[in-house]
Lab assay of single mutants.
Amino acid sequence: NQASVVANQLIPINTALTLVMMRSEVVTPVGIPAEDIPRLVGMQVNRAVPLGTTLMPDMVKGYA
């Protein structure tokens, strides 16, 4: 099963992502693939992302 990117903490709206904010986990539904974590660093979320939430492509500005 493919691992997805999951929020390791509450990520406030418009926050630029850092490695410490994300972890990989096998979840359903599948979100952004864990191998894209390096690409996500520095990108901003367009909404608040609660701890444990799977990051979906539409949550990250410029990802989709």
Rank of each mutant, 00 (worst) to 15 (best):
A7K: 00
V30K: 02
S4M: 04
Q9N: 08
A16H: 09
Q2N: 14
P12L: 05
Q44F: 14
V60N: 01
Y63A: 14
A48K: 07
L17A: 01
S24N: 15
L10W: 07
A3I: 10
L55V: 09
M43L: 12
M56A: 11
D36P: 00
S4T: 11
Q2L: 08
V6M: 15
I37W: 02
T28L: 03
A3P: 05
V27F: 03
R39I: 07
G31L: 01
N14V: 04
V27T: 10
T15H: 11
V26N: 08
G52L: 08
E35W: 02
V60A: 01
T54L: 09
E35R: 02
V49I: 14
P57R: 08
V60Y: 01
A48N: 13
A7I: 12
G31Y: 03
A48H: 12
R39D: 02
S24T: 08
G62M: 09
G31E: 02
L51P: 11
A48R: 10
T53P: 00
V5E: 00
K61R: 09
E25K: 02
V60H: 01
I32H: 01
N1R: 01
P57C: 13
M22Y: 02
T18I: 10
P29T: 13
N46K: 07
G52N: 11
P29I: 14
P33C: 13
Q44A: 14
V41I: 13
T54H: 11
L51T: 13
G62W: 06
N8K: 14
G62S: 09
Q44N: 07
L17W: 00
L40I: 10
L10S: 03
R39M: 10
G52P: 00
I11C: 02
V45C: 03
N8S: 15
I13V: 07
E25A: 08
V30L: 07
V60E: 01
A64I: 12
P12T: 06
D58I: 09
A34Q: 15
N14S: 08
V49P: 01
A16D: 05
L40F: 03
V60G: 00
V41L: 10
G62P: 04
G42E: 03
V41E: 05
D36I: 15
N8M: 09
V26P: 13
A48G: 09
N14P: 03
L10K: 08
T18K: 05
R39Q: 07
E25R: 02
V20L: 08
L10M: 10
N1S: 15
R47S: 13
A3V: 10
N46E: 10
M59I: 09
L10Y: 05
V30N: 07
T54E: 02
P38Q: 13
L55I: 12
L51G: 10
T54P: 03
V41S: 13
V26G: 14
E35Y: 04
P33L: 10
Q9H: 12
I11H: 00
I37S: 14
G31M: 05
V45G: 02
A16P: 11
V41K: 06
I37E: 05
V45D: 01
Y63C: 04
V6R: 03
S24C: 06
V30W: 03
L10C: 11
A3D: 14
E35T: 10
I13E: 09
A3E: 15
V30D: 15
M59H: 13
A48L: 05
L55D: 00
G42A: 11
T28I: 05
A34C: 15
V26T: 11
G42C: 06
M21D: 10
N46W: 05
G31N: 01
D36W: 03
Q9W: 07
P12C: 07
Y63L: 12
D36C: 14
V27R: 06
L19R: 15
V5G: 05
N14A: 05
T54I: 10
T53E: 14
G52M: 14
V26I: 14
K61E: 08
T18M: 09
